[in-house]
Computed example of a mutant assay.
Amino acid sequence: MMSLCDKNAAELHDMLMKRQCSAKEVLEDVVKRAESVQRKLNCYITYNENSLKQAEEADRMLAAGEGVTMLTGIPIAVKDNISTKGLRTTCASKMLESYIPPYDAAVIERLKAAGAVITGKTNMDEFAMGSASDTGIFGRVVNPVKEGFSAGGSSGGSAAAAASGAAVLALGSDTGGSVRQPASFCGIVGFCPSYGSVSRYGLIAFASSLDRIGSFGKNVSDTYFLHNIINGYDAKDVTSVRKNFSSELKDTLNGTRIGIPKEIFDSYMSKEVEGCISNALRIIEKSGAKLVTVSIPSVRDAVKAYYIISSAEASSNLARYDGVRYGHRSADTSDLSEL
C-alpha cells in the first residue's frame, strides 16, 4: 500500500474530503519520511514545531466544511529564504543562523489562510546564490533520485523534499533558474511564475528585479494548485501586478501559438538537453499547440546580462549584512574596518 507521503496533493485532498485520512495522519507520515531521509538528503534546515497544531486546525476546517481549499491539510516545505513568523529563517548563512522573523511573508499568510501545513524550512545555497545547493553552512543537499548527483539549486532542499516524500509540495525562489533547474534534476515539476504575479513581500532579496517565488509538486496539477493559492495582487509589494492566475486547468493547448526562439539551439547546448527540449516540443504539439519559430537575437546575451544585473543587485541587497545592524557579528575585531 502506498504511503500517504508518496501520494500527490490531489489524491490527498480527495482522501481528506472523504474522511479516509486526517490531516494529522498525513503530517505524521510526511514527518516520519522526512526524519528517515534527512541524514541522507539533508533537505531540511529547521522543522516547524507548530506543524501539528496547523494539522489539527486543518482537521477542524475539514470537519466544519468552512474555508476548505485544495491545500487544506497538505504538508508544504518552505525554502529558508522566505520569512516565517516565529520560525528560524537562515538563508543557509552564518549571518542569519539565529534569525527568527517577526512576520510572515505574503505567501505564508496565504498558505496558512488556505489551511496548509508548514513542515519546515529547506536547505539551499547561501542567500540563494548557487546552482547545486552546496554553498550553505548546513552542508550540501543530495539528489533523492540518484545518490552522488546534484539536487540542483539554489532551491535544492525544496526539490529534494518534494521528490522524496519529505513534503507533498514545496516553495522555492527563482532568480535565474533556481526552481526550474532543481525540479528537473530531482524529477518533479517546478513552476517559475511571471515576475509580479506572486508577492515578494517577505522573500529575503538576492536580485530584486529577478527574484520570484515558485512552486514544486509531483505533477503539473499539484504545482498549479499551489501557485493558484499564492498568486495575486499584494499592496505590500510595489512590483505586484493586478492579475490573477487562471482558476481553470485545461487539458488541451488547442488554439495556442507558442514561439520557439531559434537562438536557444546554439552550439553550446548539449545533445542530451536538445533531445529533451525537442521531445517536449513534440508533446506540446500533440496537445494541440501550433509551434512557431521566432528569432530573439538578444537571447545570446541573456546570461551576460543576468550576471551583471544579479551581481549588482546582490551587492546592494547584501550590503545590510555588515555585522553592525543585525545578524552574525564577529567578536574577533578591534575596529570598524576589521568588522
Rank of each mutant, 00 (worst) to 15 (best):
M2L: 14
L4I: 02
C5P: 03
D6N: 14
N8R: 08
E11K: 07
R19V: 00
A23P: 02
V26I: 15
E28V: 05
K40H: 11
Q54V: 07
Q54L: 09
A63P: 01
L71P: 01
I76R: 11
K79A: 08
N81K: 04
T89S: 02
M95R: 05
A105Y: 11
I108V: 15
I108F: 06
L111Y: 09
A113F: 05
A113R: 15
M124C: 06
D125H: 10
A128W: 06
S133G: 09
G136E: 07
R140Y: 03
V142R: 10
P144I: 11
G148F: 00
G153W: 09
S158W: 06
A163G: 12
A167Q: 01
S178A: 04
Q181T: 03
A183F: 05
G187V: 01
G187L: 01
G190S: 07
F191R: 03
G196D: 13
S197T: 11
Y201P: 03
S208F: 00
L210F: 12
I213H: 08
N219Y: 06
V220D: 01
N231L: 00
A235N: 11
T239I: 06
V241A: 11
E248G: 10
D251C: 12
T256W: 10
I260D: 04
M269V: 12
S270Y: 07
K271Q: 14
E285A: 15
K286I: 10
L291T: 09
I296L: 15
A305H: 05
N317I: 01
R320H: 07
R325S: 02
G327A: 11
H328I: 02
T333P: 01
L336M: 15
L336A: 14
L339K: 12
